[in-house]
Write a protein that binds this DNA or RNA. Structure first.
Lengths: 243, 243
DNA sequence: AAAAAATACGAGCGATCGCTCGTATTCGTC
DNA sequence: GACGAATACGAGCGATCGCTCGTATTTTTT
């Protein structure tokens, strides 16, 4: 390992920023290393002073995402809240940082991708996905203790995949449409997770099933008013990770 | 257009089969045209006798998928059933062909992809996605007439994305694990869609909510027994599309 | 200020990719 | 069996890509 100077650290940040932007625009495969270097304002040779190959760039980017996401996510994971919060709120709390993050960093979805990324990137993608999935698994285990370990993991995987699947349209949309999509994501997650908590779960305070139909999950956006979106979420960009 | 001989038609089928298989193994970008040709047992030159470029191969493959899927799907879309069927059954009927199709044709997911495919393939991907989404939109409109047009479309999009998101793990798994994942997909869709029908919807006959908890949707795999998966679905391969 | 280390450059290497082209073979038609 | 059309071949072109290398500059250390 080399002793990095401040200048070098800045270059690394520049490179990762450029890579993230390019990934967002043209995808991983089409983002050439020379283009990344050019975008970062350096020569191809300089790029390889800091990364041994293209994949390592994706990996470093992935790590940066995991870190930034972890910090943003941590706030939503106060132990107590996780167990006590009504499901509806919990869902919002867990998705909000993810949404904010992806909106602030379009292109992150390339790494957070739904699992089908070009060869070589899959390796770099896994940590991001695994980090989120791990956290969700813990929450599911806490709130639906009746589930077996494999079941818990499965539920977490499905939940994460649903979130990931909705990310591109959410990021792509804006304004009211984005809010509406977020509301749909909320409904989908609540609809999926609510039944699991009904048995021995914690405070499922929001009337598990009262009326004739099981419309517990329909409280958001499906009333009279057009949207009533979940509260706007704070931006959690990662660009200035080191700057 | 050239007059195709039987031999030529066979070559086209061979090429598309090879492309589908390679896409499944290494992805679109990494599947070189020379490799496709070799896999199809022909020379690179011959390949370009039938397709002008790589993208056109993906497009033809996409069309083949749309056709095959359409036929497989049509059976599940008898007008009457769509409106009268209980949601649970409807969901199974609509997802079953998709699952069977994707299992029989791994690699189809590359084209059915969740929307984030390498540049150039996006164009070819759209028809498949749009075809499925269109059908689902019609069903949603029929069963939840209270929704506005944009809402209907949004719901259909979300539903399709959820299905697409679950496809890779379902295809990747096998046996009991696959059945369990299919059950989870079922739960997710029902949980998402059920609330929409509660108001003015059609026959939600399947005991909307009887027991103490709202576990209507959890009837599969979430009881005492390990799985009780949805009935095995007929295979709907496309390989012999023209053979 | 000299030596060492880190950073910077950019032409270009080797490999690969999508695709072409000149030519040879097979098939359909009469 | 002759002729045109369709099919088949595969070496290789031009472009691009990931990456290297020799060298020059800047920063840190001594």
């Amino acid at each position: 390992m080399v002793r990095r100077q401040a200048r070098g650290q800045q270059r690394i940040t520049d490179i990762l920023d450029a890579a993230l932007a390019l990934f967002a625009e043209v995808g991983y495969a089409a983002a050439s290393t020379n283009a990344i270097a050019a975008r970062a304002g350096i020569s191809p040779g300089s790029l390889y002073q800091f990364f041994r190959n293209k994949e390592e760039i994706a990996q470093a980017l992935s790590e940066r995402l995991v870190t930034a996401l972890g910090e943003a996510h941590a706030a939503a994971f106060a132990e107590r809240d996780v167990v006590e919060l009504p499901l509806e709120e919990l869902v919002d709390r867990m998705t909000a940082p993810l949404i904010a993050f992806n909106v602030a960093n379009p292109g992150a979805k390339v790494l957070f991708g739904s699992g089908d990324v070009p060869t070589g990137l899959a390796e770099a993608t896994r940590p991001v996905f695994a980090a989120v999935a791990g956290r969700v698994t813990a929450v599911v285990a806490a709130r639906a203790p009746a589930l077996s370990a494999p079941e818990t993991e499965r539920v977490a995987t499905v939940a994460v995949r649903i979130v990931a699947a909705m990310m591109p349209p959410i990021v792509g949309a804006s304004g009211a449409e984005r809010d509406a999509l977020i509301a749909e994501l909320h409904r989908a997650l609540v609809g999926y997770l609510a039944p699991l908590e009904s048995a021995s779960g914690p405070t499922t305070s929001a009337r598990p099933t009262s009326s004739a139909n099981g419309s517990t999950a329909a409280s958001v956006s499906r009333g009279g008013s057009p949207a009533d979106p979940p509260r706007r979420v704070p931006a959690v960009p990662v660009r200035g990770g080191r700057g």
